[in-house]
């Protein structure tokens, strides 16, 4: 019963729950989940409102993200060009981009997401992966923690997690203060 109510609430969408529902994402030209057969990481953007912003486009070294002349256009990723380098992940002021790949190794998917909290997880740590509502989904294993100058204090955390939650997982729970 509680689950039903929760699901109902979630479907009300971005302007009620704060998080975009899957229906809203699927209806937006901006959001594309990389196809399961794709071999490399790809950028996934959850920016569906047309805000005046385009660092995703201008930061991409291969021109894989298009916003266009009107900076309120929705960004669209061209998977043919995207190399999964992740520069856009830290460049996005809205922290609305992550990289994903389905089954990067046996039954495990891959996500690299922006993370601006302390403490940072150590590589190899088990962390709690969350969905768009901050609900715990599954455990993940930290593969890399990338913090470089160009990313200007936005850390990108790379994690593997079960394929079953490929689309649902978007980030991890904050860690308790050390």
């Amino acid at each position: 019963m509680i689950m039903m109510e929760t699901k109902d609430t979630y479907e009300k969408g971005l302007k009620i729950t704060g998080a975009p529902s899957l229906d809203e994402l699927h209806a937006s030209p901006c959001y594309q989940l990389p196809p399961k057969e794709r071999r490399a990481l790809a950028a996934v953007i959850e920016c569906i409102e047309g805000i005046p912003c385009n660092p995703c486009e201008t930061s991409c070294p291969v021109g894989a993200i298009t916003v266009g002349d009107e900076i309120t256009n929705l960004p669209v990723v061209d998977f043919e060009k995207c190399t999964g380098c992740g520069i856009c992940v830290a460049a996005c002021p809205g922290l609305a981009i992550y990289l994903k790949k389905y089954e990067f190794k046996e039954n495990l998917s891959y996500i690299a997401f922006p993370f601006e909290y302390l403490p940072l997880p150590p590589e190899g740590a088990t962390v709690q992966m969350v969905d768009r509502y901050g609900e715990y989904v599954c455990d993940g294993t930290v593969l890399r923690v990338v913090k470089i100058k160009r990313m200007d204090r936005t850390t990108v955390v790379h994690v593997s997690y079960p394929n079953d939650y490929y689309e649902r997982v978007v980030n991890m729970k904050r860690l308790p203060a050390s």
Partner: peptide, 20 residues
């Protein structure tokens, strides 16, 4: 009846577990 700020902002706060 609807949230006011940019959805990308609300989304990052919501996925941190804050209820709206």
């Amino acid at each position: 009846p609807r949230l006011g700020g940019y959805g990308v902002h609300t989304a990052k706060v919501r996925r941190a577990g804050v209820p709206f």
